[in-house]
Write a protein that binds this DNA or RNA. Structure first.
Lengths: 343, 343
DNA sequence: ACAATATTTGCCAGCGGTGGCAAAAAATTT
DNA sequence: AAATTTTTTGCCACCGCTGGCAAATATTGT
């Protein structure tokens, strides 16, 4: 276990002051070319890397980003995380993951405390936590860089990456209508989630263009889980007259619908079309493969992280210039089909 | 944006020296009861929390744990992460996630560098990276606490949490045999993974007890993905005489088998039994639900993290006393069945 | 009551960097 | 060649906390 080289070692060996070494490390321009090279040589010879804690203490930078979320589904989180980490590792940041409780009284304090304690340079906040205005306000107030992911543009472009769930849902509506469906149901996510509203309204609006209306008793609110999907599907499918098509809030819930249909011997897509939202791993692997909306989660994460780092390093409008909106797209697979004439 | 309170503020207001405040924070015993209470009161009034960077700089502790892995599947990683975070948040640690390249020449250096730079108190390493002895050696050599997750006991109990994949696979073998299967195939994971060997050998060994042997051409090596599962399944199922039961390296690959069977019109479980390994989310949701081995991933993560923190805080054998082995268990669902007489 | 011992507290020097400012060196002007 | 400006470099204080040691205080024994 050899002792780690410090800036003093580098300075001594290179025959300069540590202030100069510091300049080299931080890419200051006012360092003579040969001095710089000499120092760099020593740095690499010693395999020196600066102590981030000391650096942070002196300059209030930690090169740490935080990811704040509450109980997201595994597939979504993984996608996000990969996206964030891709940027992080390229730009020399590390990522600290931090779950929290959306409904907790102390959520805002907890998050601020987390940022302070870990001295994060910035945080990325995932839905549904990202939809809490109180948190955003506190973050802004505390002067901490943050970026949120959301389904609605609730913040300045500098601080948000939005996916247009509304438009995508309308597209799904159009697709359903064009397949000839008229008896259509919608399984919604938790009411407080903005995405739930967006998707529902977008869908309804899209159907309205074809003169189709989803009757109130066919709009079922669930949570966002598979189990909830099963429950909601039962309500819809265990009746005399059932819908011919169901659009679910997400893929997990759609999988639940598939499960129930299978149990009841309802053939998908022959007798029932089912679609989800997200296009997560499950969607393409389940049988029948799920028609769904692909949400470019990874890309959102990339954009968010880029924004974040722009804001940190250039502390100006650069962040606002990174794209703030992505468009989810329809992916047609096997779980939806044209309505057969009943003959 | 109010200025953050420092230890000096607390000291001044409480009318003690900052050394005493420091003692209170770190739970030193030699602090008078009333002094302690006074200080604690001020701390909570000011909502003070110590600067981790400064703390780390002075005491070489960061309260940061690292999680090192290479491209694990989303469901596995999520399980692990939840387990680790549960312990972390209870004990006041934060988690830094750090992907790396298993095959990279510089993996060991990269990991050490990561630990040094982020001043991690310790790291948890996931398979397959955890199986690289060179890394473990380097970590040990550098005097850094670490714990690995693995399928084989390759290290002292202080540094590892093992799942007995071998025994579990043998149990699956027994189960298959008892269902009356004799024509049995095994789809393996990547050869270099210890878990691949363990599962295969355990399975073969289990079958041997019933006088059943898996013929070499029915042992197919794939990677660990769904796509690979599909590919391997094709090799097995597109022949005259096909197996009546297939045990796949993991659930993703088993899902691939299900997919191919479905395409070929082979009924599962009537004509073909399929089993996986892991019991991830997918396993219970796919249709038919997958018979599999439940690997207590979350629990492994809990144990590993507990070990880790024991090692950090007590720097002694305490870590070795945390359980080091878990037993995966058979979960029977719908994808396996007794072999019907052919009549 | 006084000495001896145990407990509690404070002072000061770092930990390894960065920032401000001034000194030294180099480049430019007159 | 001297004066002025610009570039490069070094010194020192400080970021917020902990560790060692000594001082102050409380406790115990005789």
């Amino acid at each position: 276990m050899q002792k780690q080289a410090t800036i003093n070692d580098v300075a001594r060996i290179a025959g300069v002051s540590k202030r100069t070494v510091s300049r080299v490390i931080n890419g200051s321009l006012s360092v003579g070319d040969n001095t710089r090279q000499r120092v760099e040589k020593v740095i690499s010879e010693l395999n020196y890397s600066p102590n981030t804690q000391a650096r942070g203490l002196a300059s209030s930078r930690s090169y740490l980003l935080g990811l704040i979320y509450d109980n997201p589904d595994a597939l979504y989180l993984d996608d996000v995380q990969r996206g964030v980490l891709e940027v992080c590792s390229n730009l020399g940041y590390e990522l600290v993951v931090h779950p929290c409780r959306y409904r907790s009284e102390t959520l805002v304090q907890d998050c601020l405390r987390f940022m302070r304690r870990s001295k994060l340079d910035g945080v990325i906040v995932l839905p549904p936590v990202s939809e809490l205005e109180a948190l955003a306000a506190a973050l802004k107030d505390a002067g901490r860089p943050y970026v949120r992911l959301s389904s609605v543009a609730v913040d300045e472009p500098k601080h948000i990456v939005v996916s247009d769930d509304r438009a995508a849902s309308a597209e799904m509506a159009r697709y359903f209508a064009q397949l000839g469906h008229e008896k259509i149901a919608f399984i919604s996510g938790p009411k407080p989630y903005k995405s739930a509203t967006e998707r529902m309204e977008g869908f309804q609006h899209g159907l309205a263009a074809y003169g189709i209306k989803v009757p109130p008793h066919w709009i079922i609110e669930g949570s966002n889980t598979y189990e909830s999907g099963i429950e909601c599907a039962r309500k819809l499918l265990l009746t005399e007259s059932r819908p011919t098509a169901i659009f679910a809030y997400n893929d997990h819930m759609a999988a639940g619908v598939l499960k129930v249909a299978h149990e009841l011997g309802i053939k998908v897509p022959e007798q029932l079309s089912v679609a989800g939202f997200d296009d997560n791993l499950l969607a393409s692997r389940i049988i029948p493969a799920l028609t769904t909306i692909r949400r470019p989660v990874r890309q959102m994460a990339l954009l968010a992280t880029t924004k974040m780092i722009m804001a940190i390093e250039h502390n100006d409008k650069a962040a606002a210039n990174v794209a703030a909106k992505v468009a989810p797209t329809l992916v047609v697979r096997e779980s939806t089909a044209r309505l057969k004439p009943v003959n």
